[in-house]
Design a protein around this nucleic acid. Structure first.
Lengths: 216, 216
DNA sequence: ATCCTGTATATTGTTGACAATCATTCGATT
DNA sequence: AATCGAATGATTGTCAACAATATACAGGAT
């Protein structure tokens, strides 16, 4: 396989997204085309193209003749996104319950066990990483490309808000107990139950956001 | 309110989308930047920006150094999209059942009555139009901006495939009977039932696509 | 002091030109 | 005749300059 140089638009897109998701560029901050272009040694063309893609993805807002700004979400936006995320999670669980294989169950079980360990050690960072992996795996196993893409896009939007800490409960044990219940429902191939569990599990994220009273 | 001229990118985006959705540009067809630019009396810059947005929206595919092509969906893609559409429909119904107002019920009821009339007249075009209106209204009433946007985006993708005829059952009476059942569930504020009805109603679209055996 | 207003500056919008890559055609070789 | 390869034409990728719009600032009138 020959290594093909990707387009500058793709490079810029990646870099811009990285800066936004890392918090280097905070919500509401403007993205100056000229400055960003010079810093990355490209012209404004690729920058503009990348920004148009990011706008469609919901990570930035473009105001005509004013420029592009990192999207600033109101609490209502976050709630809406969380709700949809929960519904999609429920669907992923429902599908997976009907199609899950022995190997997939083994993978998921292993992740939950690793989380169990990290929870005991109060290792929040590690727990969070495996937690993401676990949920991602459920969507991957659900065998619906589009569903996976939507989940990825939604997560990026939520990630955007530095509410990363809120995506997982502070009560690691409780969170993992829910994971175990999901595993159980999956093992029993109980689609309705898995769906409900997944949805409730995801809804708790919304509840934490609401409880925190963040107004964006 | 002063009439502000919209950017060329926005104009081109609208025109390109129109041509794609109308079928003037069919799936798989290339979009030649230079030709499209000259035909619309603009330079290639705005064209490229609009195409990047359409790519993110899923209406076109861009192959590096080759160009942009109207997206060609495989049957599997269509099925995936239909499934997600059904899930979102179910969610919209669920929410609406809990929040629906008298006025909204009146609006929906009126639409169903109009469909009833058109169904008797075998006026498929008119039925289809009201049908779209009905489903759109349910999403509008659900008061979730993001949900509405997703539904609109998904519909555009499905529209893309000239399967427009399949979006509504050939059996207009049966279709409208389902609408009436949805109304009934809404009136009873039965969230679970409304959700199930909406989802099943939407799933029938997928069934027709599968039955037709279209492979894209 | 505050509020206009006109000017200067900065930023985005658009364009045409040039470079890089891909598709095609024609000719040479086997 | 079929195949490979080089030259040619077409198309996309990138850039820098120009135009249009918005912002910032200074000066004057009230």
């Amino acid at each position: 396989m020959i290594e093909r140089p990707q387009s500058l638009t793709a490079v810029v897109l990646q870099e811009l997204e990285r800066q936004i998701l890392s918090g280097n560029l905070g919500p509401g901050e403007p993205v100056n085309e000229k400055a960003f272009a010079e810093r990355n040694s490209v012209s404004r063309g690729p920058i503009r193209e990348a920004c148009r893609k990011l706008e469609q993805a919901g990570l930035v807002t473009i105001i005509p003749n004013r420029g592009v700004f990192v999207r600033k979400l109101q609490a209502k936006d976050a709630i809406e996104i969380c709700d949809i995320r929960a519904v999609l999670s429920g669907y992923a669980g429902r599908i997976l319950a009907e199609t899950v294989t022995r190997g997939q169950m083994a993978d998921l079980t292993e992740m939950v066990e690793r989380m169990e360990k990290e929870a005991r050690l109060r290792n929040v960072e590690a727990f969070y990483a495996i937690n993401s992996e676990f949920h991602q795996a459920i969507f991957d196993f659900a065998d619906n490309q589009r569903l996976r893409e939507m989940y990825a896009a939604i997560n990026k939007e939520l990630y955007l808000f530095r509410w990363r800490a809120m995506l997982v409960s502070p009560d690691l044990e409780k969170s993992n107990r829910e994971h175990q219940e999901i595993l159980k429902a999956l093992a029993e191939r109980d689609a309705a139950c898995t769906a409900m569990m997944m949805e409730r599990h995801a809804i708790s994220v919304k509840n934490r956001i609401v409880a925190s009273g963040l107004g964006g």
